[in-house]
Write a protein that binds this DNA or RNA. Structure first.
Lengths: 226, 226
DNA sequence: ATGCCTGGTTAAGGCGATGATAAGAGCGCA
DNA sequence: TGCGCTCTTATCATCGCCTTAACCAGGCAT
């Protein structure tokens, strides 16, 4: 599934997680120390790193910053402390996610998949094109037939999400969880509102769609006008 | 003269060189181990590193590669071996120069000056242009429509950073870590203040931007006025 | 045909992000 | 050691965006 580097000093946890993750299909290398871990991170270039905070030889945040200096490899931090406040500096230092001990390999696997999914979706820094529509993630700007569109952040996110899946039907639920990052709770009228605003700015109506097509009972899709 | 980091395990050589280089006007920090040295390289960002190959805890070439992963800081390698063939992999790994033991502080100083001269001359310090804005890293000066702008050091750094990424949205967090070199800690009001000052000196307001556009919820971007 | 359900639009309020200013701290330089 | 320039921090005003709510319009099933 993925190359995982596990940096964890407790030998029991380390071997248990290694075994567990391997059974779930990952390739796992591990290190009991920060420095050795850093070396492995540089040499082996794992797809993802699981980093325990309570290392003996170096503060976890410190190591995290060094890792970040070296690469943008996703890092999941594991910690015994459970206060959320403890996690703020860690996340600020560039961690992608965290788990609180005790945690199982299966739990960790779920996080790993989520983080990798997110990370994998990212490197789309190239402008996207759908017909006369151009969506540029780097500039966070969109143009329609050369005309710059004045979009709000959320509108841009929605358009961008649809543009990366142009031609594909996307459910509102999907938008809510992916764009809004909300656990789907039914309050999806907000999505409707934003789609409406988008349509207006795209110069079209729901009755006369050009790019943004409603698929009744399913969702919406972004497609080239025919 | 320069911030030098000396990574050398032999205590006699280390202290002798430290003293010698200090007398020649350099600021010297040092480490007897590779890992500690790496940490200092990341944290202190020296102007140049002098690296001994015969370290106890990690192969020199290995460390060199890790250093290169972290930064492009010039590295002079010191070695006891005298065969030139030994040096090929070292130079391939990204060393800028090397000296063979035994060597004096004065000798080293000459190398240091040569490397820094080369390194300092090199970085494509071409003036950047964004519309009527010109940012000259070499002179650390900027002009707007031919008019020289009176910028403070920090203001210039911010403008320069944005100019190298013109058209791209840059987050405040990014500015804080890249320009201020701070581990993001949330104190990003400072960034706002500097942006505000920049805007004033660019003759624009946030409400009527010409070059410096805020992208709400994300950051700012420098772009040509339309 | 009619009522329900899905989807669309509009309006209004609250919240959070941003912008500007001023005061204080730090620092280098004289 | 003192002065002045910069940078930082704090505060407040402002503005834009998102959400919520209410209402409207079609289509589909009964």
């Amino acid at each position: 599934m993925a190359d995982i580097l596990l940096i964890e000093d407790d030998v029991a946890i380390r071997s248990a997680l290694s075994r567990g993750l391997r059974e779930l299909g990952h390739a796992v290398s591990s290190s009991p120390t920060a420095f050795e871990g850093l070396r492995l991170a540089v040499d082996d270039r794992p797809d993802l790193i699981v980093l325990d905070l309570g290392l003996p030889d170096l503060d976890g945040v410190e190591l995290l910053r060094m890792l970040r200096a070296v690469s943008r490899v996703p890092v999941i931090v594991a910690t015994a402390r459970d206060g959320d406040s403890e996690m703020v500096p860690v996340l600020d230092a560039g961690a992608d996610d965290y788990v609180v001990k005790p945690y199982s390999a299966a739990q960790l696997d779920a996080r790993i998949r989520a983080v990798l999914r997110r990370a994998g979706a990212e490197p789309a820094a190239e402008p996207l094109r759908v017909g006369g529509l151009r969506v540029d993630p780097r500039a966070r700007a969109a143009t329609l037939d050369g005309q710059e569109l004045d979009l709000t952040p959320r509108e841009f996110d929605v358009l961008h999400y649809l543009a990366t899946r142009s031609g594909e039907v996307v459910s509102k639920r999907q938008l809510l969880t992916e764009v809004w990052q909300l656990p789907y709770g039914g309050a999806d009228k907000t999505v409707d509102v934003h789609l409406s605003w988008l349509r207006r700015k795209l110069g079209e109506t729901a009755a006369e769609p050009r790019y943004l097509h409603t698929v009744r009972g399913v969702g919406v899709k972004l497609a080239e006008p025919s």
